[in-house]
Design a protein around this nucleic acid. Structure first.
Lengths: 204, 204
DNA sequence: TCTTTTGTTGACTAAACAGTCAACTGATTT
DNA sequence: AAATCAGTTGACTGTTTAGTCAACAAAAGA
C-alpha cells in the first residue's frame, strides 16, 4: 500500500489553528505548510485548495466535537443540567484557549462562517449544517425541560433558536473583546431567557 | 487651497462595501482603488494602509448610524416601542441589503470584529468602543422599561448584555444562513427575553 | 528482486500584491 | 502671472502568493 504518513492530519490541524487564531483570509497555504511541516507539493497531493482543506478539517473537528456534545447532552442527564454543563464546558474551553494562545477565540464556526459565507459556498453549506446540528442539542434539552414542567416552552424549536443566537452572540463578543468575563453570564442568561424558576436553578 | 476632491469619501465607501460583501482579508487595496475609481498613488496620499482606511470608514459610518439610532432610541419614545422599532429597523435594513446585493450581510461590526480582532489592534479597539455604545442604547431602554414597571430588570446593564448578545447572534446567523426569516423572530425574542407581559407587547 | 502504490521534495512559473516616487494638473492666493 | 497648495497619475520596485511538475523515496505485494 505504499508508504503512509500523517501529513494530511497535520495539515488539517494546522489550518484549523491558523484560521481560528487569525482568519481564513489571512491564512496562506505557505503558512499552513510551514506549520504542518509539510512541503507545498504534498499539500497539493492531498488537497485541491485551501477551501478544500478547510472543509476536510471542519468535518474532522466536528466529528470530535460531536462526541463531546453527545456526552454533555445525554438524555440521561436532566435537561437543565445539560444546559448548565454546556455553559460550563464553553467557559472552560475558552479559558484553556486563552491560557494557551493569549486570546479568547470564541466559536470557530461562527467566525469562519461570518467571514467566508459570501465567498466559499462549499464551506458555507457545511457550516450551516453543523450549526443546525448544534442547535438541535439545545432544542431537545428545552423540549425535555418543558415536558418536565421546569420551563414554559411549548415551541421548543423557537426557544432553541433564541438561546442559540444568544450563545453565538456571547462567543462572538468574547472573541472581539478578548474577554472571558462575558461568558460567565451564560448560565444566568440561559435561566433568565428560559424563565427557569429560582428553585430549579443550579449555579455552581 | 489647492484643488479638492471626494476621493477620500469614495475610498471609504468602497472599502466599507467590499469588506461587508466579502471580508477584510479578501479585500485588496487594488480592488478598493478600482471600485472607488482612484489610483493607488492617491490611496497612499490619503491613507497609510488598508487598516488605516478601514478605521476611518468605520468612524464615518458610525457617525451616520448613531444619528439614526439616536432617533430610534429617543427618550421621548416609550422604551418597549424603542426596542420594537430597533428590531423593525434591523429587519428593513437587511431586507434592503438583500435586495441590492442578493445576500443578507448582517452586522458589519461583528463580522469585521470577529475576523480581525487578533490581527488589527487599532480596528479592534474602535469596534469594541462602538459595540459598547450600541449596547448603551439597549441599556437605557431597558432601564426605562423597568422604571415604568413594564419589565422586571433591576440590573439593566446585565439584561442589556444578554439582549445585545442575542441580537448579535441573530445578525451573525442571518449572514451565515443568508436568511431574513431568522431576523423576524427578533421582536418576539426580545419580549420573551425581557419577560414583557402580553398586554405590553406590540407586534405589528 | 522488482514492481506498484503512496507519498515527498525542491525548483519552477506566473500572477497578484503592497508600497514608492517623480512628474504632473488644476484650483487658489498674492 | 507666478507661486503655492492639494490632489493625481502611471510606471516602477520587490515580495508574496497559488499552483505545477518531474524526479525521487519508502513501504508493501508479486
Amino acid at each position: 500500500m505504499g508508504r503512509c504518513s500523517d501529513a494530511k492530519q497535520r495539515l488539517m490541524e494546522a489550518v484549523s489553528e491558523l484560521i481560528w487564531t487569525g482568519s481564513y483570509g489571512s491564512t496562506t497555504i505557505d503558512q499552513i505548510c510551514d506549520k504542518a511541516g509539510v512541503k507545498k507539493g504534498s499539500f497539493y497531493y492531498f488537497f485541491d485548495s485551501k477551501a478544500d482543506l478547510a472543509l476536510a478539517a471542519l468535518e474532522a473537528n466536528w466529528n470530535c466535537k460531536r462526541a463531546e456534545l453527545d456526552s454533555i447532552f445525554s438524555p440521561t442527564v436532566p435537561p437543565l443540567e445539560r444546559l448548565r454543563r454546556y455553559c460550563e464546558y464553553g467557559n472552560k474551553y475558552q479559558r484553556e484557549i486563552q491560557k494557551k494562545c493569549g486570546c479568547v477565540l470564541g466559536c470557530p464556526l461562527l467566525t469562519l462562517g461570518a467571514e467566508i459565507c459570501t465567498q466559499e459556498v462549499g464551506l458555507q453549506k457545511k457550516i450551516q449544517e453543523i450549526l443546525e446540528q448544534k442547535r438541535k442539542y439545545l432544542e431537545s434539552a428545552i423540549r425535555d425541560a418543558h415536558a418536565a414542567g421546569q420551563i414554559d416552552a411549548p415551541d421548543a424549536a423557537a426557544k432553541a433558536r433564541v438561546l442559540f443566537a444568544y450563545y453565538q452572540g456571547l462567543q462572538a463578543e468574547a472573541r472581539i473583546k478578548n474577554s472571558l468575563t462575558i461568558l460567565q453570564d451564560a448560565i444566568r442568561g440561559t435561566y433568565d431567557l428560559l424563565g427557569v424558576k429560582a428553585a430549579d436553578q443550579v449555579l455552581a
